[in-house]
Amino acid sequence: MNGFMSKEQWKKRLNRRILVNRIFYILFFAATTIGLIFLAMLLYRVLTQGLGCLNMDFIKGFPAPYPDEAGIYAGIVGSIYLIAIVAPVSLVLGVSTAIYLEEYAPKNRISRFIQSNIQNLAGVPSIVFGLLGLTFFVYMMGFGYSLLAGGLTMSLLVLPIIVVAAQEAIRSVPNELKEASYGMGATKWQTIVRVVLPASVPGILTGSILALSRAIGETAPLLIVGAAAAIYTLPDSVFGPYTAMPIQIYSWISRPGEEWPLVAAAGIIVLLAVLLLMNAVAVIIRNKFQKRY
């Protein structure tokens, strides 16, 4: 081939390099599938354990001291109530913040500070939000271990996620559309309300649904702000005690005995089904509006 290597050496080396490439292709692929295999095992395991306990009595039942009587109804309703608080609070604050940062914020240090603050807030462990909720909502505001304290704590937790998603959606609205609106004498707010927001609604909705599904699956902060493990009535007001699906599941996991894990698995099936539903909605919204511009 050239002065440094004989043709045979070169050929041998090439074959070896091709072999290495082949081996690593397989290794990389195998590594990628490990996560997927794990996911498949997890789902299989949960389904085989939990399907036996999953029936109407379980879905409509309240917590009970015996595994065969326990149900997740209070958890389902509690989670729905929580979302009913989290969704409006975090959406209003999150979208307003995103509009401010994308459309109004002057390019100065305060804006940059707010932006990096949101980024950092998104990285704060959820349990720390629980501590904030415990001190501020439970004790200082005097809400106690109530639905309201839990909902507001969760709202703060998902707020940074919604802000970031809404910012991305707003940023992706083409500048030409805004120009068209301004060109006809529209004010900034008219342009935002009539052009920018309608065009970014799919993105905001998709991001928000994913953020809310995070809130539905989140356990730690609710444990801190005192969601109840055992509750035999539905919350009658926002100041009442409450529970949530992951809290129920956690309390079943922690109980001794052979049958409680099966109940926990049944609860997990319900929780995953709810999350799957929400994600499906998000995907449908995203696909429906994907080819806009």
Partner: peptide
């Protein structure tokens, strides 16, 4: 008024596109 380099209709109906200007006023 202004017409731009690239056609930039709003992602709305034809009717709403035209009615946009009058409506904001």
């Amino acid at each position: 008024g202004m017409v731009f380099q690239k056609p930039n209709p709003f992602p709305k109906s034809i009717y709403d596109n035209i009615a946009y200007g009058p409506r904001i006023h």
